[in-house]
Design a protein around this nucleic acid. Structure first.
Lengths: 336, 336
DNA sequence: CTGTTAGCGCGTTCAT
DNA sequence: ATGAACGCGCTAACAG
């Protein structure tokens, strides 16, 4: 552990000359520079981050905050965020809130410790309390949801896909394929994540002049096990009442696949399934699942880029980037 | 952004009293403490991490370095590492090396910047150059591989599972099930990850007095696509020459499953498959894959705990924790 | 071109 | 119990 003072002593130069030599900023003779560089190497000198940060207020770290790390949905985003940051010499710090609003606020609050230069946050519920905390943090933030703001200069941007559209697209696709009875396998509809998808489903039915039938909606919890259990239960009680199903995420879709297999229902011949999310699981399942890609990669990439624009170029005005989900056809749907 | 100086002015106390009041260390009257706490709240005071770190040399951050983030294998480990760290108020910084030895060394070198308190590193190749850098960093490090050391006090520990045993267990299981011709689908055998698995496979054959037949070994690259292509190719050229197969990771196993489906080979009736890794993909595939769990969770947890012992309790002696892989039976194997 | 000086914000002496 | 003073290591302004 050596410092610029050690190098100073070693070379007979002052610490500030050493600093200039190493940073390349400010005047410094070739000769001094060479001496310093040699001594630095010899002493194994590496600048201490904390000292730099204290001085110049740059930490070269960004926080990525997600609801939980137990969901493959975030995986793609994480990778892209990491990739963008890496290119700019930034590190990603991972934090998760366990779907807990208090925890979420705690983490946003921690921004004030200035141990990161900004944050990307993915939440199921951007309520006013959270937004207030985000605003008062004063740090650059990117939300991966839509948030309606009427100020042209906020400290946050948004990069997101419209979840309603995703459910809409999935439902509309099944209808277009000739399915008359299209069901929905959904998670908690108290959360934004849940009710937005339900709304998209309802809108698609409405646009096709089909009345919404609550009995075709199966409530579960966004997990594979949940999907399996609730759909098994449903089949046990009511039998196969639909020919098409929109599963609100891949995990539930796979659970549903297993339930069908057990009940000897052939997918897609007897039941066509479209899932939302299009994670890698879709192409591991059999049949491979037709799914709506939520543009996780692009959202991650765009979010990271938006953040870096603020951090590095000092952009102040608010940008909203909205992306369209995209249907990926595989083998879990047939025409009726 | 307020500092202890601001609070000092606000309360009429000196910065050092404020510091004591807030930290609880050192003398401080109740009265002063209350005044300070109130002012701190009012001013929205939050200590700046960089200043703390500079002073006390604690960053509350740990680096987790993995070869790539494009592999679900690391997912479970990441979660556990994160969980353990979180409980102790630590954050995880993610870094990936893209299987690049130079990059790996760069990252280890960056430890000297003291921007983390320690590191967990997962590498395919702990060669002497890398180990040298790890040693000279002087930082607490945990390797997730076995590394033979003859010194009782190093700055690193190991927490790992024996990959040879994993391949051994998988192979031996198939042999025990009555399979005579057991093949191997393996990745790059230049890397530790590859050759150790190959060795385990060979050892199992040897122990059952079956001679190693190179023709039953299919070389690929640890990806799903690679598994699909190479196994398709193999089937195309030689047909089905085996009744059992050990796939050296889940992704290749799933690729192989797809190749079989295309060639109308029924798994497990015609070909039994055991994969290594037991990631979540195994139970998404059909048939669900029998797999050897590499104890990713436990490795992650133990690695993080070892690291925290060094960081927080100052342990100096070296600990090696070795875990046994565990076979998880599902539906991709039949008795012969 | 170089050295002196003065912070960045916090924590820890050491006097008082 | 409190405050003054200093140092953690680096950077930048200024004087020389």
């Amino acid at each position: 552990m050596s410092t610029i003072y050690d190098i100073g002593k070693e070379t007979g130069l002052s610490p500030s000359t050493v600093a200039r030599a190493l940073s390349g900023r400010g005047y410094c003779s070739e000769e001094a520079k060479i001496k310093v560089e040699r001594a630095a190497k010899r002493l194994n000198y590496v600048p201490v981050q904390a000292a730099k940060s204290l001085k110049n207020k740059i930490t070269k770290k960004v926080m990525f905050c997600i609801p939980d790390i137990y969901n493959p949905y975030y995986f793609d985003m994480m990778r892209e965020v990491n990739n963008v940051l890496e290119k700019q010499g930034y590190y990603m710090i991972l934090a998760h809130t366990g779907h807990n609003a208090e925890k979420e606020m705690e983490i946003v609050d921690s921004l004030k410790e200035r141990f990161v230069d900004g944050m990307i946050i993915l939440s199921f519920n951007f309520d006013d309390r959270l937004m207030e905390k985000i605003r008062t943090s004063g740090m650059p933030v990117v939300l991966t949801n839509h948030y309606d703001s009427f100020s042209d200069e906020e400290n946050f941007d948004c990069a997101y896909v419209d979840y309603r559209k995703a459910a809409y697209i999935a439902t509309e696709y099944l209808l277009r394929k000739g399915h008359k009875k299209v069901g929905l396998l959904v998670g908690d509809i108290e959360e934004q994540m849940g009710y937005e998808r339900l709304e998209g489903y309802q809108k698609a039915l409405e646009d096709s002049h089909i009345s919404y039938n609550e009995k075709l909606v199966v409530h579960s919890d966004f997990t594979k096990e949940g999907g399996y259990e609730k759909y098994s239960e449903y089949l046990g009680q009511k039998g196969l009442t639909m020919t098409g199903l929109v599963a609100c995420n891949d995990l539930m879709g796979i659970g549903c696949l297993q339930a069908c297999r057990e009940k000897k229902i052939v997918v897609p011949d007897q039941l066509s399934i479209v899932t939302l999310d299009n994670t890698d699981y879709c192409s591991c399942a059999y049949p491979e699942l037709t799914s709506v890609d939520m543009r996780q990669k692009q959202v991650g990439q765009n979010a990271a880029e938006l953040l870096m624009e603020r951090i590095q170029q000092g952009r102040r005005y608010t940008k909203m980037i909205s992306l369209m989900p995209r249907l990926v056809e595989r083998n879990s749907v047939v025409d009726m």
